[in-house]
């Protein structure tokens, strides 16, 4: 299975390089959160847990956190800011007014 790395791997010498261009590592090192101009924020007071935002995130940068309430399985969307590129799809697609709002990055 591919390994996670903290940095992009560049093989130092021929002897370390595989004989052909095969991937051995994931892309986790690439913290795409730095691409973001606008930060989506979830207001959990308003969020109904419909998971529409999770469904439409192209990264994916929204985790579906499972929990139990009244004996029922439920989900809660949690934005992973390390990878969220700030595209705004979740904010446009969220059906609940105000459940996702945006902040300028750095505010």
């Amino acid at each position: 299975m591919p390994e996670k790395t903290e940095k992009q791997i560049v093989f130092d010498k021929v002897k370390d390089t595989p004989p052909l261009a095969v991937s051995l590592y994931t892309m986790d090192y690439n913290k795409t959160g730095s691409w973001r101009n606008v930060r989506p924020v979830i207001d959990y007071e308003k969020c109904t847990g419909c998971m529409t935002c999770w469904k439409f995130c192209p990264e994916p940068a929204i985790d579906a956190e499972k929990y139990e309430e009244d004996g029922k399985e439920k989900y809660k969307p949690v934005i992973d800011y390390e990878y969220c590129k700030g595209c705004g799809i979740c904010w446009v697609e969220c059906p609940v007014e105000g459940a996702i709002y945006t902040e300028e990055e750095g505010e």
């Binding site: 986790d28 795409t32 192209p58 595209c87």
Partner: peptide
């Protein structure tokens, strides 16, 4: 609420696609 598409994420984040 139930998820309407499969839960497992196979595609990882950190990929190089443009925003959106």
């Amino acid at each position: 609420m139930k998820l309407t598409i499969p839960e497992e994420e196979i595609m990882g984040h950190g990929h190089l696609a443009c925003q959106g």
